[in-house]
């Protein structure tokens, strides 16, 4: 049975960013459940626990203490259990090369954190919508690349 809401998870060490993130989802039409973690270690501990509810889309901040977003990405990509999770990199900035590299490492989405709340809402809504399309129309997730 299809769930009628989308599970969203974010790992970001910045409190303000977590706030913007959860606030933004309140305005999005698609029903979402948002879970946040303060860094990569907390995130991975949760995902690896037996009763974890795996997210449909996982947002990873790249620059986190203890375990970076890229390390999380590599760990997740190595575990077949997480193969259905769409991974969105959610970062302040990176060079073109870094962005391509995270895609090559298996990220599906790269979001440069917008400096405008309206844009943030728009971007997140689009991510969720497109992911929803992939999700509901059985589209090939291997080809799912999206960048903002």
């Amino acid at each position: 049975m299809q769930e009628d809401y989308i599970n969203i998870t974010l790992a970001d060490d910045d409190e303000d960013d977590r706030l913007f993130f959860t606030d933004a989802f309140d305005d999005i039409k698609i029903t979402t459940r948002v879970k946040t973690f303060n860094d990569g270690v907390y995130l991975m501990d949760y995902l690896n626990s037996d009763d974890a509810l795996l997210p449909n889309v996982l947002f990873l901040d790249l620059n986190m203490p203890r375990k970076s977003g890229l390390e999380c990405l590599k760990e997740i990509k190595q575990n077949p259990k997480f193969k259905d999770i769409a991974i969105a990199i959610y970062s302040t900035s990176a060079s073109e090369e870094d962005i391509e590299n995270t895609f090559i490492q298996g990220a599906n989405i790269y979001i440069k954190k917008p400096s405008d709340f309206k844009t943030l809402k728009k971007v997140l809504a689009e991510v969720v919508t497109i992911n929803w399309q992939y999700h509901t129309n059985s589209m090939n997730k291997d080809n799912f690349l999206l960048r903002f």
């Binding site: 910045d14 303000d16 960013d17 913007f20 620059n63 302040t92 900035s93 954190k113 917008p114 400096s115 405008d116 709340f117 309206k118 943030l120």
Partner: peptide
């Protein structure tokens, strides 16, 4: 320059946009 300076700036801008809206 890229990250640590951008981050507070981005927050200033985001809060400004929320303030405005």
């Amino acid at each position: 320059a890229s990250h640590d300076l951008q981050e507070p700036l981005r927050k200033i801008q985001t809060f400004l946009s929320r303030l405005e809206d």
